[in-house]
Structures are given as C-alpha cells and as structure tokens.
Design a protein around this nucleic acid. Structure first.
Ligand SMILES: [Mn+2]
Ligand SMILES: [Mn+2]
Ligand SMILES: [Zn+2]
Ligand SMILES: [Zn+2]
Lengths: 141, 141
DNA sequence: AAGGTTATTGAAAAGAATTATCACTATGTC
DNA sequence: GACATAGTGATAATTCTTTTCAATAACCTT
C-alpha cells in the first residue's frame, strides 16, 4: 500500500493552456484550445491538450462541462456557476444567478451520501438565434 | 417552403424500446437498452436503438441525460426532475426535489432569449460506495 | 552545476460511443 | 391488395477522447 504518488510538474504547455482557457468566456472545446495554443507552441500535441485539461480540472483550476454525447467544453472559471446553452448555435453563457449551495446539503441528507458539487443548466434559444429566426421568417413572406 | 414533413409510424421496435425504458429506474445507457430489447427481438440492431431513443426523446416520451464525455443515459420519465450521480459507480438516482420552473422565466428575462428546459444535477458518492470505502479502510488497518 | 529519476511530451494508433449509409422491409393510406 | 415511403438490420464511417511509448525536460539530490 501507500504507493508513492507522483507529484505534478509545472510545464510550459500547461501554463499556456491555462492562459488560453482564462482568456475567453466562450467555454471552448478541447480543439479550440488546441488551435489557440498552437499559435504559441506550434508543435504541441492534441493529446497534451486533453491531458492537461483533465489535469487542470482535477487540480480545481478549470471546469469540464459535457453536453450531448459529443464534445466537452471547458471553463477557466472553477467557481461553481450556472450556464445557459443555446440549442441552435451551441453558445454557452454564464448566468448571474446565486449558487444555491445549501441544496447540496439537502441532497446529501436525502440520499444519505456525499455531494461534492452540482450543475444547473438552462437550454433554449439565445437572443441572436431568435432574431435570426425572425429575419428568416420575414424573408419567407 | 412548407416541405411535406414525414409522419411517424408506429413500430414494434420502438414499442419494445419504450417498454424497456419504462421498466427500469436505472437511467440506462443505449447499450443496456439494446441488450434488453434483444431478449425479445434478437435481431434488433443497435442503430435502431439509437434511432428510436432519439425519436422518443424528440417526441417527448423520454429524456436524454449526458454525463462525462462518454455515453448518454436515457430516462423513461419525461417529466422534468433532478438527479444525483455517483462518481464512483455511475449510478443515477432520481431526487424528490421540487422543480423550480420559475427559474426558467428568470433566465429567459436575463438573457433575453427563450428557455425550454433546465437540468439540475448533483455529483458525489452514493451511500453504497461510501460504506464500501469504509469497509476497505478497515481492511487496510 | 552535473547527474539521476520519472512526470510529461509529441506523434501516432487505438478505443468507444454515436451516426450515416443503403438495400430491404413493413406500416399506414387509398 | 397495391403504393409510397418511414423504418430496419448490417455495417461502415465519424468524431471525440484516451492510450501508448520512446524521447524530453522538470525537479530533486548531490
Ligand atoms: Mn462558465
Ligand atoms: Mn430520472
Ligand atoms: Zn444561439
Ligand atoms: Zn456509487
């Protein structure tokens, strides 16, 4: 037992990845991060992106948001907060709603288990996509 | 415009799939549904399972819940309700919490868009996995 | 500062879940 | 019953993500 656990080294790659993640509010996909990081480190590998996004998430410096059965999006703001997802364009936006932390206690009592976090997400159509739909309707007339 | 939209036929396959979905509270994966349906229809194809789970979801007879970046789980109860997900064993359980429908209005005002539904999920360790961990701890002593 | 250990990398292959394709089948309509 | 076409089974293709592994480089010990 007590296997000697490896420590975490600081690497240039992870640093750039975190910078990129923090530079946007777009909740980017791994691939978007990859493209951005390549501008600074052309030889970085996609595997490294995935590896580090995972590491950062585990270190509590990022959040991973998974949607649909397709790709994950990442968030450079590790504080819990809620999101709105546009089902038309896929855009993910932060919501300025109070985080109901006490719900976690309610639930942990309810299930007699341990709750470590919760996610609240709203789905629908964003303003931009709504007005786009309107415009198209007018055209059709 | 007004493209003549196809109608939806009733098929034996979809019927069995919905039955299977309604027969469990386990929030099964597509593959689990597949295995169950095969017991009754050995020649059913996995593609048919996916196709119909999607159709049922679109028809409002099922819910699709996506977790992690891997697989989706499905829910034969299409009424909105909240879930707890055990990060150890993957078990998904229904929570008996009141659904805060009015939050959707708050958000739609906030973003000036249209909200069609919301999801609230809690993550942590379930009771079973907790007691299992305890047992393991004792062993280690 | 040099050397040693091993976490991390880049490149590529493998994996896993889901979707697309297409000839054939069967549902619903007339 | 005949027709039109939505749905099926079988399989290939996609897509996102993880794994592999030799080479590299971060960090600790001298
Ligand atoms: Mn966010
Ligand atoms: Mn449920
Ligand atoms: Zn949109
Ligand atoms: Zn569990």
């Amino acid at each position: 037992m007590t296997a000697k656990k490896g420590f975490i080294r600081r690497t240039k790659q992870r640093e750039v990845i975190l910078d990129v993640l923090r530079s946007t509010r777009s909740h980017p996909t791994a691939d978007w991060v990859y493209q951005e990081v390549r501008k600074e480190m052309p030889n970085v590998s996609l595997g490294t992106i995935y590896r580090n996004l995972k590491t950062l998430t585990e270190m509590g410096q990022a959040l991973e948001l998974s949607y649909g059965s397709t790709y994950s999006r990442f968030d450079g703001n590790p504080e819990n907060h809620y999101h709105f997802v546009c089902e038309e364009c896929g855009q993910v936006t932060d919501l300025d709603l109070p985080v109901q932390k006490q719900l976690e206690e309610d639930v942990s009592d309810m299930i007699d288990g341990q709750v470590s976090y919760h996610r609240l997400e709203f789905y629908g159509v964003c303003r931009d996509c709504l007005s786009l739909a309107e415009a198209t309707d007018h055209e059709a007339e």
